[in-house]
Amino acid sequence: MENAPLQRKTGLTGLVFEPVKRRFFLRMAGVSVITSTVLLSACNKDDDMAPVADGAVDLGKDDTGILNYAYALEQLEAAFYTQVVKTPYASIPAAELQLLTDIRDHEIAHREFLKAALAGAAIPALEVDFSAINFTDRASVLGAAKTFEDLGVSAYNGAGKFIVNKDYLLLAGKIVSVEARHAAAIRDLLSPKTADFAPDALIDSNGLEKVNDFNTVLTAAQPYIKTVISGMNLPTK
């Protein structure tokens, strides 16, 4: 298996992608050990992808599609906080600017990590549309931040069960709890010392946080992204 051909060998992709491809093929083949390169190459074809609308960016399928889904959301968040820090609202307290700068750095770290991991399979840079956000107004900025963070958490949690590669599931887990930390901190800025950091509207009576499926998340995110995104090849169960 160590010599199995890689679909993409450039950059970091080889390292990151070989395991998922292999596991996917093994699953498809229904066996635990396989050494046939013929089968591996056959499975590497992308000819079973559904066509997407003209001009739309297709996230792709399988774990690659899910990583691109995460990459799209992280692009959105990183672009948002970059703008927030570049043009902070009037008389922003130093501690608040620091908090938002921290979050910007985390989101850029997520974005750049996913881009590196996806390498040749990464979707292009997305064009964002923040025309609905007033960057000079604290309530508008923090309100948008809250929306993006809550959405991000629900997206990762909804995607978890579709992830095939255990390493990717762990990586998603490492990111999602940081998004939840962001969400609570932003909510704490908006309504300090209340139950709003984890409100009943988001946490059900079993103490479980809201989960959203691919379609719900993409529909909610699309108004902030000029580039049309298609998740039609993302996994289903």
């Binding site: 921290d102 949690n157 069960k161 887990g173 609570a184 704490d188 950091f197 984890a198 103490g207 946080e209």
Partner: peptide, 27 residues
């Protein structure tokens, strides 16, 4: 798995707000 992820996120929200009450960063 999904239930565990849902609880995991709630614990992270708790951690963040408690850290802030202590004057720490949420992360």
């Amino acid at each position: 798995l999904t239930y565990a992820l849902q609880i995991h996120a709630v614990e992270a929200r708790h951690a963040s707000v408690v850290r802030r009450l202590r004057g720490q960063k949420g992360w």
